[in-house]
């Protein structure tokens, strides 16, 4: 069972719809025991970094997420991906979950609108199992204003938005997608499927 972590921030239902469509057992949950009994965890998120961290703290799940992510795969999506880093700089500095080295900063592309909204192509970097059924150049759907600033060794794929934006990151058991796999058509579904079959 995949536990989709419900901490009050996010597009939980589109993630659930995608998992249901793939026939993958899943549960939207805010309970620590579900996170413990799950095979894998998904951390969604839409909104701002500090609010989301506050809500995660309020949920009381941070300790469980940290303990479980040492044993089983965790996938953060969009803001959920950004929370995986050490720090976020959206409305001041906020401490993140610290699974992956680096921080999250406002994008500063020249002559391009913020947020980035739309389909951008993946540029493969480090080999990653989540991309096993994808091709370099496949398009995925992004909606974001902030981006990770992190070592290249943790980046499975970048996208080009006037700057190199980490699109898919990983470190050990922990994976993060800046794009929305649940809104990225067949490519996104393949990435979710690859995560669920880790």
């Amino acid at each position: 069972m995949i536990a989709v972590i419900d901490y009050g921030a996010g597009n939980l239902f589109s993630v659930k719809n995608a998992l249901d469509f793939l026939g993958i057992e899943n549960k939207i949950t805010a309970k620590a025991e579900d996170l413990k009994s799950a095979d894998k965890l998904i951390l969604p998120g839409v909104g701002a970094f500090p609010d989301a961290m506050k809500m995660l703290e309020k949920s009381g799940l941070i300790g469980t997420i940290k303990a479980e992510a040492a044993k089983k795969p965790l996938l953060g999506i969009c803001l959920g991906m950004q929370l995986l880093f050490q720090k976020g700089y959206e409305f001041g500095e906020t401490e993140g979950l610290g699974f992956i080295e680096g921080s999250v900063k406002l994008m500063t592309p020249e002559n391009l609108p913020i947020p980035q909204i739309g389909w951008n192509s993946l540029e493969f970097n480090e080999p990653c199992r989540l991309l096993q059924n994808c091709k370099n150049g496949d398009y995925v759907y992004f909606v974001h204003s902030y981006a990770a600033d992190c070592p290249s060794k943790n980046v499975a794929a970048y996208c080009d938005y006037g700057m190199k934006v980490p699109a898919l990151v990983f470190s050990g058991n922990v994976y993060g997608a800046q794009f929305h796999p649940e809104k990225s058509g067949d490519v996104g579904l393949e990435i979710l499927k690859s995560f669920c079959s880790l």
Binding site: F13, S14, N17, D20, F21, Y141, E182, S184, G185, D186
Partner: peptide
């Protein structure tokens, strides 16, 4: 539609 179509 949202249950079957995974684009915006």
């Amino acid at each position: 539609t949202a249950k079957q179509v995974f684009v915006p």
